[in-house]
């Protein structure tokens, strides 16, 4: 479950959705495509996973439905766009910090392949 506490670790699906929404509001399909692009095609999310995660993120206040629609003439007006909230941004930042700390530890322990430099 998604915890409202921004210090709680995020599930991979929630993390990828927050990453996708960090660069702007998107509808469901847009989130899926962004997740795919961000992960260079390594992470694909079906509608079941996406909307199951979105439901819990909405309940936890990590995302909300956007008031405005992006160019309604060009798009289906019934389409719901989602945007990241302040709590969602904090949760994402906390998760990225956790990743950064892990990467730092891995570097100190020389766990990365020689070809990999940060």
């Amino acid at each position: 479950m998604t915890d409202t506490n921004s210090n709680s670790p995020l599930t991979p699906a929630v993390f990828h959705i927050l990453m996708a929404l960090s660069s702007g509001e998107r509808h469901g399909y847009g989130i899926m495509k962004q997740v795919e692009a961000d992960s260079q095609g390594k992470v694909t999310m079906g509608p079941g996973t996406l909307y199951g995660s979105l439901k819990r993120m909405l309940d936890a206040g990590l995302v909300r439905e956007s008031d405005k629609r992006v160019d309604p003439e060009m798009d289906d007006e019934r389409r719901i766009y989602y945007q990241i909230t302040g709590i969602g941004a904090e949760a994402l930042a906390a998760e990225l910090e956790r990743y950064q700390r892990i990467v730092t530890i891995a570097q100190q322990r020389k766990l990365f392949p020689k070809t990999f430099t940060i």
Partner: peptide
């Protein structure tokens, strides 16, 4: 509750794909 909130969006996303 899930269906009322997200059902239509799921259909739309499925159509998009």
């Amino acid at each position: 509750t899930f269906r009322d909130e997200l059902g239509e969006s799921m259909e739309q996303t499925f159509d998009d794909i």
